[in-house]
Every structure is written in C-alpha cells, then in structure tokens.
Design a binder for these strands. Structure first.
Lengths: 127, 127
DNA sequence: TTGCTTGCAAAGCATTTGCAAGAGC
DNA sequence: GCTCTTGCAAATGCTTTGCAAGCAA
C-alpha cells in the first residue's frame, strides 16, 4: 500500500509517543484525551486522520469491536490475540500457541492482509 | 443467561425467517429493508430490539467489525470463522481446521463465551 | 389483566467531510 | 511554492432511549 503523507508534525509525534509501548488498547476518545493534555488545541478529526494514517503505514492495528464497544488501537503489530470483555470493552493481550493457517484453497479469492483471534467473555471485574 | 421475553410476534417471526439459512451476514439495515417488504410498518428500533434478543437467546451471532464496516449478524451459531473484505465489508464463511485452544492459565480471569477468527483482506471483486 | 413488545420520534455518540488557514520540505 | 496537515464546524450514520399504545398469554 502506498502512503504519500509523511510530514513530521507535533500532533503525529504526540500520538505516536502516547501509543508507543502502550498495552491498554485505547479508544479514539482516550487517545484524544491523553494527547490533548500536551497539545491543547488538537482536534478530534486530526486524531482520526492520524490513526488512519498510522494504520495504513502498518505502525498500529485497529481492533474489531462488536456492538456498543468502540473500536480500539494497538501499537503492537506483532502477531498476537485478544481477550475482550463483552461488558466493559477491556482488551487484554493473549498469545495463543500456534498461528492459524489459511490454506490457499480455502481463501475464496481473498488477498489476506491480517488476521486476529478474538476471544469474548467477562473479565474479572465484570463477573 | 436469563431471557424473559418470548412472545411470538409477527416481527420476530419475520426476522427469524429472513435470517434462517441466510449466508450473507446481513447488517441491521439490510435486515430492516428485507423485513419491511412484508411488515411495512416495522420500525428500525424493533429490529435492533429483536436482534439483541435473539443474540441473548443464542439463536444468532453478532460479528465484530473494524472501522467503517457496520456490525453484521450470522444465524449460523456453530463454530466457524470469517473472511472479511476490508474494502466493501463482505463477509464469507470459512472453516479453519482445528479449533483454537485457550489454556486455563492464559485466560487471565476471563469467563470465555465465544471466540472467532477474523481474517481481513480484499475480496475478488475489490481487488 | 399483566407484562412483554412495538412504533415513533428524539436523543446520543462515533466517525467523516469540506474547507480555509497553517506548517513541513 | 506546493502539498500535506490541521482545526473547526457541520453533516452523517448508526444505535439507543423514552414513552404511550398495542398485543400475547
């Protein structure tokens, strides 16, 4: 995928800095709140823009969410899976032993980019 | 999970009938459009209500979606996985050989309800 | 009758878009 | 200077909610 944009801006740096090493899988709102403390005039639209850009650049992953739970972002792009609380939306990393294989003959013409194993349940606090 | 509601209504029957055996993983809007042809006065809120109810009853599954792709529903509740087109949102069933195992010691206190393997890519038409 | 259900309209959020001003290279 | 970026505000779109009327049991 070709990504032309690559200017080094304070907004982009701040978002990257906040995400770097972050294991909390923050939502867009959480990222906006955190970054706003430094860049008080940053707009939500810029956060959306930047997250989309970083995703296209392969620097972060967007996590699929069901129902009312908003979408979240993960700066860890190495293969791993997620435990997701259906109640509060908390996401916790989990590493499953083997990686799932998708044999060519089952791909039904799809060009596969990425895959994720989502495990839904109730977290300790929500039980 | 306790689900008290269980009245047999025309709306509920129509939605169930539309979903029964349906392999297209329809969105709420698509379900509403289809059912509206028979029950012309059904409201979108009722469709949402009913889908939530059917989900609680375990009769259907809600598929997690990333980004702009809206959430979809699957009447097939037997274990299987999905190929999802990141471009148009099309969802196609795929059966992966083994089921993923989640060892007790890795569950981090979660009560696991269900899991799904989502495989993202571009479908034949979108390439 | 009683309580679950429906339809309608309004409210709530999350996300996207258009555009003019500003910043990086 | 040219293009990418940003901020703002408005516009979308999806989903939920409140409530009175309706219907199943």
């Amino acid at each position: 995928m070709i990504v032309k944009q690559q200017h080094r801006t304070a907004q982009r740096e701040a978002i990257l800095a906040f995400l770097d090493g972050n294991k909390t899988h923050p939502s867009v709102g959480e990222i906006y709140d955190a970054v706003s403390k430094q860049l008080t005039t940053i707009s939500l639209a810029t956060v959306y823009n930047t997250l989309l850009l970083l995703k296209k650049q392969g620097l972060i992953r967007e996590l699929p969410a069901a129902g009312r739970l908003g979408t979240r972002f993960d700066p860890d792009v190495t293969p791993h899976d997620h435990l997701i609380c259906s109640e509060c939306g908390t996401v916790v990393d989990i590493k499953l032993s083997g990686n799932v294989e998708v044999p060519e003959e089952r791909r039904q013409g799809f060009d596969i980019n990425e895959m994720s194993v989502n495990i839904y349940g109730l977290c300790l606090l929500c039980k």
